[in-house]
């Protein structure tokens, strides 16, 4: 009898725990702040991608810039995007010079401290394209620090959400 109760309780627990588990245990959310430099020109298109240990694109975490006609200017990422064009869930507006943008990105816990990298790729209409405006190792330390960009991005900061 006791066994049956225990099993039922366990099942009940699993039923409710399932949706939470995927969020609470497998992935965590980070607020990611991107501060742009005071460059002149149109709004920058910035893509945040998860890069695996082999240096290949694994997942698109965020696309800042909504007009698809400009995606081809973010050359490297665009190759990956053309294979898996489903990024509509993680798009937002492009960021202008001097502006700051705070986005919530979701990172699977298993990828942290596991040799993965976060890449910030940027392009501005009729201006230079930066394939690695910023690339940081996906480690606990890096997620706590302030990382300087090399192109249109001044710096990026994270904070657990």
């Amino acid at each position: 009898m006791q066994k049956i109760y225990r099993t039922a309780f366990l099942l009940l627990l699993l039923t409710f725990a399932k949706p939470f588990a995927s969020v609470a245990q497998d992935a965590s959310k980070y607020k990611c702040m991107i501060q742009m430099t005071n460059y002149m020109g149109e709004g920058a298109y910035v893509v945040i991608s998860l890069i695996n240990g082999k240096g290949a694109y694994e997942k698109t975490l965020y696309v800042m810039g909504s007009d698809k006609q400009w995606y081809k200017t973010i050359k490297e990422w665009n190759k990956f995007y053309l294979k898996k064009p489903n990024v509509s869930a993680v798009t937002g507006a492009s960021i202008s010079g001097g502006d700051r943008s705070v986005k919530v990105i979701e990172i699977e816990k298993s990828k942290i401290n596991a040799g993965y990298k976060l890449r910030f790729e940027s392009a501005v209409e009729d201006k230079q394209y930066h394939v690695k405006d910023l690339e940081i190792p996906l480690t606990t330390e890096a997620l706590a620090a302030k990382s300087e960009g090399s192109g249109y991005i001044r710096y990026v900061r994270f904070s657990p959400n």
């Binding site: 959310k29 607020k31 937002g92 705070v102 986005k103 919530v104 959400n161």
Partner: peptide, 10 residues
């Protein structure tokens, strides 16, 4: 306004 709500959603 922009930000995130209590559940961390944008």
């Amino acid at each position: 306004i922009k930000g995130s709500d209590d559940e961390g959603q944008e």
